[in-house]
Deep mutational scan, measured.
Amino acid sequence: MDPFLVLLHSVSSSLSSSELTELKFLCLGRVGKRKLERVQSGLDLFSMLLEQNDLEPGHTELLRELLASLRRHDLLRRVDDFEAGA
């Protein structure tokens, strides 16, 4: 399986429902409101961002910004580990 997708799945499974709600709010300018209403998990949101090329294995800035906004430094370390091994 693609290591970047494994990372996104790992991050998604670590998010609380309130954190997902916050991420959806933060992505309002990037993803349409109707699409965001269908998001049920972090993976749903990340999939939309992947489709729009806002997220890519070599383009993790948005993911970092979102996780920093949540103050999830543990998840930021996972992104660091991914990039160190990528």
Results as ranks from 00 to 15, higher is better:
Met1Leu: 08
Asp2Phe: 04
Pro3Ile: 05
Phe4Val: 01
Phe4Cys: 02
Leu5Lys: 15
Val6Gly: 09
Leu8Phe: 02
Leu8Asn: 00
Leu8Trp: 00
Ser10Ile: 10
Val11Tyr: 04
Ser12Arg: 02
Ser12Gln: 02
Ser13Ala: 15
Ser14Asp: 13
Leu15Met: 06
Leu15His: 00
Leu15Asp: 00
Leu15Lys: 01
Ser16Gly: 05
Ser16Phe: 02
Ser17Gly: 08
Ser17Cys: 11
Ser18Asn: 13
Glu22Asn: 08
Leu23Gly: 00
Leu23Asp: 01
Lys24Tyr: 04
Phe25Cys: 14
Cys27Asn: 05
Cys27Pro: 01
Cys27Asp: 03
Leu28Pro: 02
Gly29Tyr: 05
Arg30Ile: 08
Val31Ala: 06
Lys33Pro: 11
Arg34Ser: 13
Leu36His: 03
Glu37Arg: 10
Arg38Pro: 07
Gln40Phe: 09
Gly42Lys: 03
Gly42His: 04
Leu43Ser: 10
Asp44Arg: 04
Asp44Ser: 05
Asp44Val: 05
Leu45Asp: 03
Leu45Ser: 02
Leu45Lys: 00
Leu45Phe: 04
Phe46Ile: 04
Phe46Gly: 02
Met48Ser: 06
Leu49Ala: 02
Leu49Pro: 01
Leu49Glu: 02
Glu51Ser: 09
Glu51Gly: 08
Gln52Asn: 13
Asn53Ile: 04
Asn53Arg: 13
Asn53Tyr: 10
Asn53His: 14
Asp54His: 12
Asp54Leu: 14
Leu55Ile: 15
Leu55Arg: 05
Leu55Asn: 06
Leu55His: 06
Glu56Ile: 10
Pro57Val: 14
Gly58Arg: 08
His59Val: 05
Glu61Thr: 11
Arg64Cys: 06
Glu65Pro: 03
Glu65Leu: 09
Glu65Ala: 12
Leu66Lys: 03
Leu66Ala: 05
Leu67Thr: 01
Leu67Val: 05
Ala68Arg: 15
Ser69Met: 11
Leu70Asp: 00
Leu70Tyr: 01
Arg72Asn: 03
His73Ser: 13
Asp74Lys: 00
Asp74Arg: 01
Leu75Met: 04
Leu76Ser: 05
Leu76Asn: 05
Arg77His: 08
Arg78Cys: 08
Arg78Glu: 10
Val79His: 01
Val79Thr: 00
Asp80Gly: 06
Asp80Pro: 01
Glu83Lys: 07
Ala84Glu: 15
Ala84Lys: 14
Ala84Gly: 12
Gly85Pro: 12
Gly85Asn: 12
